[in-house]
Nucleic acid binder design. Structure first.
Lengths: 359, 359
DNA sequence: ATCCGCATAGCAAACGTTTACTACACCATA
DNA sequence: TATGGTGTAGTAAACGTTTGCTATGCGGAT
């Protein structure tokens, strides 16, 4: 813009107070170096008077902390992640950090670009939802000498602090609930299973089937073709529609469907509705995430809750603890899934788990 | 972290290439100062070899552009804004800027805090959804000698570039559509009308009523008590439930309701559904925004579209043009509302507008 | 032969801090 | 009286760039 009004510097203050810049700096940077109370107060007063605010860049040039936290997620447009971001932001503000939101859209190159950018900005730390356990990404993170906390995507590692979620158990619980309510032919509808979290969720599903003595049918794993999440909010929703279409094309309709997330479930339900198939009367649908919309749609969605806000809050607090070199905090937290019973699953006859000795 | 591996600086490069740092800087900062081709290439080669990346802080200390763009919005958790943020992010990445997302939750103090923070970081520009036309905020923005583009909240001003939206027309269109489909007793359900955009939308509603010769009833303006948007995604949804409750408590149920936004409409519809009132058979509901979920709920929501992605894209491009001192671009854009016809409004007998000479 | 402009390059200051080092006065202890 | 600690303050280097100024050599115009 036109004419910068020359911000006040410690030099100005030093001149007025008739002391050296060193002294001013000591006072204004909250150093524990002793400065006479009288002088300290005078400097503080002048600083306030001149509306002094330190130049962050020179501080950082001297190696100070940038007070920025990189937050790498698949997509801000996805309501699950935008809520996560909101909770991260809340904690950041409280501790005077600034979150830098980076959507990776599941593309490694973009993720790499973001990481480079964050490195260049010397962020104080990074909160990241690691999508793959590729050695490449992991090594890249290890080399990045900054504070890192993993979240959202379960990836326990001695190398990183993390806030995890029991995806396996979540998949198990979803399946078990369906089985116990009389469903046997259960489809699993998902975007490609390359993510660790999705794989685990799927494994939970398989294990539950096994435990209840239900044979898994290959055609019940319904996977859409898409690779990368698009930029739009309704990506998974559209995906759900596709999956529903695929399911309708099967020779035999399943009793129930487990969707890889709530948005997908919405798409599935909507497609069914448009095709005169009633949920849950004709077919049951189970979601995963429990995003706020789950209770807004009709029928309201029975789903497994993933504690979004808690995840964001804990992960951010963990990271800040790490940055500020606190020592007394948990370095790994594993959050538990919780079943949220609503109206998208039909309750048929109750079925109990086959005990081992039944077999 | 443990031991920083000492990043390479132009000094290292200068030493190897046997030239001065000035020359290295000139090459590496794309200055137009002439440097012999041979030397230039050598320096470039060495830089690449040592994986040199410039220290942003020293550059900024010298007054360079921070390449950051502050984005101030009411709340990231709100799907409308998270989609907006996504489109802003997309443009930013293309031009190598980094968006800094700031949720103000409609609290002036927080907004002020964010602005202070952005100022301190010497951001290249700010994209802001101005909620009030308080002189305080406006002056504060004017004094902020940085590039500013207003968006989302219509506030045309000679002092700022802006991407506007015709809220007045939107309100008019919503109302007109309802009237033309046979509704006369139309309630307007909203959070407090302190925002300019809401006021305009409301004025459009009033004007349409007037043009169609329908007398406005005071009790048809239903306003919830809440002041500030909360941090959660479902704030407006809950608000909608409250509003629906208030409406149900009226002695006479209106034919139709215009909700201040889609999320509010969802809440209203949901509350009605829970109370055995069928939308649109018993009462029609009209939304505003056309967020992706509008077509996911049941009944799908008839609403007025506000072009989110276009807004984000245009505003960001405008700001970057401004930052980079381009001159040939529009400084004010006004986007048009569009009616999206779905299933939440019942079509009764068509009614035409009273012509002026009818009166 | 002189002067000028131009291409090229280096020197060193400057951006605003922080901090290692030095200085010195004061007081307590041996 | 010498010794040393402690509280307080200043000097100047350093962080990694950019850039105004100066310098040199060279070709062309006068």
């Amino acid at each position: 813009m036109a004419d910068k009004p020359k911000k006040t510097t410690i030099l100005d203050i030093a001149a007025i107070a008739n002391v050296s810049t060193a002294t001013v700096s000591r006072v204004l940077s909250n150093s524990d170096y002793p400065v006479k109370q009288e002088v300290r107060e005078q400097i503080l007063a002048i600083a306030k008077d001149l509306a002094y605010s330190p130049n962050l860049f020179s501080r950082m040039l001297k190696g100070a902390d940038s007070k920025e936290i990189g937050v790498i997620i698949p997509s801000v447009a996805n309501p699950f992640y935008s809520q996560l971001v909101a909770s991260v932001e809340g904690v950041c503000i409280k501790h005077d950090y600034v979150p830098i939101i980076c959507s990776s859209y599941n593309t490694p190159e973009l993720q790499l670009k973001h990481i480079e950018m964050l490195k260049q900005r010397c962020v104080s730390g990074i909160l990241i939802s690691v999508l793959t356990t590729d050695d490449e990404v992991i090594n890249q993170l290890k080399e990045l000498d900054t504070n890192i906390v993993l979240f959202d995507q379960t990836f326990e590692s001695k190398d990183f602090d993390s806030v995890n979620f029991d995806f396996y158990k979540a998949g198990y619980m979803a399946t078990e609930y369906l089985v116990q309510n009389g469903h046997r032919n259960i489809a699993f509808a998902t975007a490609p299973l390359e993510r660790r979290s999705r794989k685990l969720f799927y494994k939970g599903y398989r294990k539950a089937l096994e435990d209840y003595g239900i044979e898994f049918e290959v055609t019940n794993l319904v996977v859409s073709k898409v690779e990368n999440d698009a930029i739009t909010t309704d990506f998974h929703y559209q995906n759900g529609k596709n999956l529903a279409k695929m399911i309708l094309e099967k020779e035999k309709l399943p009793d129930a469907i487990i969707a890889i997330n709530d948005m997908t479930a919405f798409g599935i339900i909507n497609f069914f509705e448009a095709n005169e198939i009633v949920v849950p009367a004709d077919i049951s649908v189970m979601g995963f995430d429990n995003i706020p919309f789950s209770e807004m749609i009709s029928p309201s969605l029975t789903t497994i809750e993933q504690p979004i806000n808690l995840t964001g809050r804990l992960a951010t607090e963990m990271l800040i603890n790490k940055i500020e070199q606190k020592t007394d905090y948990e370095r790994t937290v594993k959050l538990e899934p919780k079943l949220i019973e609503r109206k998208s699953v039909r309750k048929k006859n109750k079925i109990l788990r086959k005990e081992k000795n039944d077999l």
